[in-house]
């Protein structure tokens, strides 16, 4: 068939051509318009099971990093104004190092009072001693006189009385000294109690008091701890394991732990202990009305030293091998 351009037929040539071209374009449109439903790899690395557990029985848990001493919320034995804070967050302290000092003016004035009383008591003692000496010599003088007519009986009795009174005064003064000393000692103890010291060696994690603030011995409520510290070398991690999974955990085996947000950096953590008490899961949703009926076994692992990868309070994901008996 030769196409005769002068005698081109709409129905015999143009329409079929349009139909064919239209079909080709439609096919292209249809195949280019098909939705892309291919599976994609996640852009950011999610927490994955370590290679050696990938296809083995295992238990997964999530947990929180804590100091190996657990978190110590340092309290104050007495209430009062803070006059000095000697540590900053991040400081490493030794056991007994001063953390902060509470206003000690009252205790110091009591101490000064007691010191003055000591001086006073000492003076009273020496005064009593000299009085006793005088009285003793007077009595001895009267006693050495042989002539009964020279000294009246009454004189002697008075001298004897003075001597014994001087003795009593000395004892009184000594007792007063002891009392004053005791008062001074208790004032010193009080002053000592106003200085809050680190209970153990460790790292200061938070400092929630500043100079001039009032610390109270009354905790509770929403009160923040004044200073939180703990031993961060090494760090521990407390892994929550669903009670349903708890029997499967191979206790004693090391766990693989990775922090949230850096799932590709996995570390091996050695087993420390499992808490004997199964507790309700603490969900970190910050809702006051939160109620839970999921209970978890808490297992504690020791994290290896890692510069800044893990921080206290951080959430982690962990994989633990399951026991051989459990399937």
């Amino acid at each position: 068939m030769v196409i005769d351009w002068r005698n081109l037929s709409i129905s015999r040539q143009i329409l079929p051509a349009i139909a064919v071209i239209g079909l080709v374009i439609a096919a292209l449109f249809i195949f280019s318009g098909l939705p892309d439903r291919a599976l994609a790899e996640p852009e950011r690395e999610p927490a994955r099971a370590p290679a050696d557990l990938a296809n083995k029985a295992r238990v997964a848990g999530s947990g929180v990093v804590e100091p190996s001493s657990e978190l110590i919320q340092v309290g104050s034995a007495v209430s009062g104004l803070v006059t000095d804070v000697r540590v900053d967050p991040g400081d490493r302290v030794l056991a007994g190092q001063v953390l902060f000092v509470v206003d000690d003016r009252i205790a110091r004035s009591i101490l000064r009072e007691a010191d003055a009383a000591i001086v006073q008591a000492r003076a009273a003692i020496s005064e009593a001693r000299s009085a006793r000496t005088t009285a003793a010599r007077q009595l001895a003088l009267y006693r050495s006189v042989d002539d009964p007519a020279a000294v009246s009986r009454a004189e002697v009795i008075r001298a004897e009385g003075e001597a014994s009174a001087a003795n009593e005064r000395l004892r009184l003064a000594q007792a007063q000294l002891q009392a004053a000393q005791a008062r001074a000692a208790s004032a010193r103890t009080e002053i000592d109690r106003l200085v809050v010291r680190a209970p153990i060696a460790g790292e200061i994690l938070t400092v929630n008091i500043r100079k001039g603030e009032f610390v109270s011995t009354q905790g509770g409520g929403n009160a923040q701890a004044f200073i939180e510290m703990g031993q961060t070398q090494p760090l521990h991690v407390r892994i929550d394991i669903d009670e349903e999974q708890a029997p499967r955990v191979a206790l004693g085996k090391p766990a693989t732990v990775s922090p949230r947000g850096a799932a590709e950096r996995q570390v091996r953590a050695n087993f420390v202990r499992a808490e004997p008490l199964v507790v309700p899961k603490r969900s970190l949703t910050n809702s006051a009305a939160e109620r839970v009926d999921v209970r978890v076994l808490q297992v504690i692992y020791e994290l290896p030293a890692s510069d800044g990868l893990f921080r206290v309070g951080q959430q982690v994901d962990a994989y633990i091998p399951a026991g051989s008996a459990a399937k």
Binding site: P42, A47, A54, N55, A57, R58, Q245, K281, V294
Partner: peptide, 17 residues
């Protein structure tokens, strides 16, 4: 319950959850 996540992660063959 929120621990379902850990239960799923415990299953062998789960790359991530």
């Amino acid at each position: 319950a929120s621990t379902a996540l850990d239960r799923v992660r415990s299953v062998p063959g789960v790359e991530w959850a």
